[in-house]
């Protein structure tokens, strides 16, 4: 299957933070949620995908092309949304649109105005008076108005209210009706992903912990709670992370069925949410490639 994004053996040292030998593939035609704690390396990887940061070693390919040879062609096909404010405060949205629209060959003015109406964005108001949520909506309108094949979003929902967050998820689901589109989205809000993402990539301290289909994660990962007497060398191997307390233990497993057979009714076994997986899986590393 063709990949929209491929990172191969990427190394990057950056201000006391490091990514070592990271490989990752993002499938074309799907939504991939990119999750991880603050400082895990999500933004660094997104910036490498956009060629804002260059890897010390390894290769980044987008749509099978590299930036050295096809920078403009790649960027034409990407719509991006960053968490940072990237608009000129003194300009109105209409003036900013004129600047950005001219950069893309496939810019669709009708579509842009449709999104501005839908997001209730004032076209003739200086953007310095925009709230954080409005700025994010403006960035979304820009990203969605040039028929990009790949949408890269770095925490787009963090400054949005719950109502618009839900609307955005609806909108992105609409975008994905076109099978040629790909969305790569980093977020801290896991509920956004459970309704939208096809795949989840978890990053921890610059390393990919896993990159799997969401339904696979839901089937495989579980939280196990039980008495300390259940733990020994043989049983511990099924856990990615174990937290012990005076009363027993809580652990994360990526092998739900085996653990269920092993412990039966002796332990409480529940499907793990993405938050729980993120919380418990610190330090564990599994194959990063999609199966």
């Amino acid at each position: 299957m063709e990949h929209a994004i491929e990172l191969q053996n990427v190394h990057k040292s950056f201000g006391g933070f490091g990514i070592k030998d990271l490989s990752l593939q993002i499938k074309k035609g799907f939504v991939t949620g990119f999750i991880g704690a603050n400082g895990a390396g999500k933004s660094t990887i997104i910036k490498m995908i956009l060629n804002l940061l260059q890897p010390d070693a390894g290769e980044v390919r987008v749509f099978g092309m590299n930036y050295k040879e096809s920078e403009k062609m790649i960027k034409e096909r990407i719509g991006f949304v960053f968490n940072d404010d990237m608009l000129y405060g003194e300009l109105t949205l209409l003036e900013m649109k004129k600047l950005i629209a001219a950069c893309y060959r496939k810019w669709d003015d009708t579509l842009f105005h449709h999104y501005c109406d839908r997001f209730e964005l004032p076209l003739r108001q200086n953007m310095k008076s925009f709230s954080d949520g409005m700025k994010m909506k403006a960035a979304l309108a820009f990203a969605l108005s040039h028929h990009a094949d790949l949408l890269i979003m770095d925490e787009p929902t963090s400054s949005l209210d719950p109502i618009f967050r839900r609307e955005l998820m609806e909108l992105l689901r609409g975008v994905m009706l076109d099978e040629e589109k790909t969305i790569f989205l980093s977020t801290h809000i896991m509920s956004d992903l459970s309704s939208l993402a096809d795949y989840i990539t978890l990053i921890q301290e610059g390393e990919i912990v896993f990159s799997k289909a969401l339904n696979e994660i839901e089937e495989e990962y579980a939280i196990v709670r039980g008495g300390a007497e259940l733990l020994d060398k043989d049983t511990e191997q099924y856990f990615l992370s174990i937290r012990r307390s005076d009363n027993g233990f809580e652990a994360l497993t990526a092998d739900y069925q085996t653990v269920e057979k092993l412990f039966g009714s002796e332990a409480i076994i529940e499907r793990a949410s993405l938050e729980e997986i993120m919380y418990y899986s610190r330090g564990g590393k599994v194959d990063a490639a999609f199966n």
Binding site: L50, I78, D85, L87, Y88
Partner: peptide, 18 residues
């Protein structure tokens, strides 16, 4: 200064420019 204030380096380098 305006580019610096608006994170212009990120914006213009993410747009289709070298």
């Amino acid at each position: 200064y305006a580019d610096d204030q608006a994170n212009g380096h990120t914006l213009w380098n993410a747009l289709p420019f070298t």
